[in-house]
Simulated assay, not measured.
Amino acid sequence: MTHSNNLNTTLLLLLLLLITGLSVNALADNRPYREYGDLKIFFSAFNSSFIQPDVASSYNITRGKDKGLVNIAVVKNDRAGGVPALVKGRVSNIFGQQQVLEFAEIREGEVVYYLAPFRFDREDWMTFNIDVRPDPDKPTHSLTFQRKFYVDE
């Protein structure tokens, strides 16, 4: 093997290690938010049965054993309460069946966040693709995350 081939092999191995390391880090990122400059976009998704019936009723949320909610909040400069944003998204199951997420803005005093309902079947991995645009004059921020859901018996 020539010196050139050894160098190419070494560079290829380093590149593969770098890519593998980045993939592992991306998968290991379990933070409940993503950072984009001075913005943090917080996200969660959960079974709608976790919400108490009186709270669900006051926000017109339909609870159900096969219904979930995704929650998005945008915080700027770590300021409590959040900021308004345009939030759009889709959720899909492992079979690629998609649902458009219809986000409703919720305001409680200074707090602003966005909720969208979705359905799931039995034991289901759901993949969320969310676009958030806090400022109409700036680019949209996209985030993707997965959660596993179980029908609440």
Results as ranks from 00 to 15, higher is better:
62 T>N: 13
133 R>G: 01
66 D>M: 11
67 K>I: 10
64 G>H: 04
153 E>D: 11
87 V>R: 00
21 G>F: 05
68 G>P: 04
113 Y>K: 01
76 K>P: 02
61 I>Q: 08
30 N>D: 09
74 V>D: 02
19 I>C: 14
127 T>H: 07
83 V>H: 02
55 V>D: 11
41 I>L: 04
90 R>Q: 11
41 I>M: 05
41 I>R: 01
121 D>C: 08
37 G>K: 13
70 V>F: 03
115 L>K: 00
119 R>G: 09
95 F>Q: 15
117 P>T: 06
114 Y>I: 01
151 V>N: 04
140 T>H: 02
64 G>N: 07
49 S>G: 05
9 T>C: 08
14 L>S: 13
50 F>L: 14
28 A>F: 08
12 L>W: 08
76 K>F: 10
11 L>S: 12
40 K>L: 10
72 I>Q: 02
56 A>D: 07
16 L>D: 05
134 P>I: 06
69 L>W: 02
17 L>M: 13
15 L>D: 07
25 N>S: 14
120 F>A: 04
28 A>E: 12
79 R>Q: 15
24 V>W: 13
34 R>L: 09
82 G>R: 00
134 P>A: 06
34 R>G: 03
113 Y>N: 02
120 F>W: 05
8 N>L: 11
136 P>H: 05
116 A>V: 03
36 Y>P: 01
75 V>I: 15
40 K>F: 05
144 T>F: 03
49 S>W: 04
114 Y>C: 02
62 T>L: 15
38 D>N: 14
46 F>T: 02
62 T>R: 14
132 V>R: 01
30 N>S: 11
40 K>E: 10
77 N>T: 10
80 A>Y: 14
111 V>N: 10
100 V>G: 03
106 I>K: 03
45 A>R: 00
14 L>M: 14
15 L>H: 06
136 P>D: 05
79 R>N: 15
53 P>E: 15
43 F>A: 01
75 V>P: 00
57 S>V: 11
125 W>L: 14
25 N>A: 15
110 E>Q: 15
95 F>T: 12
131 D>I: 04
15 L>Y: 05
11 L>F: 08
84 P>L: 07
73 A>Q: 12
106 I>M: 10
78 D>N: 15
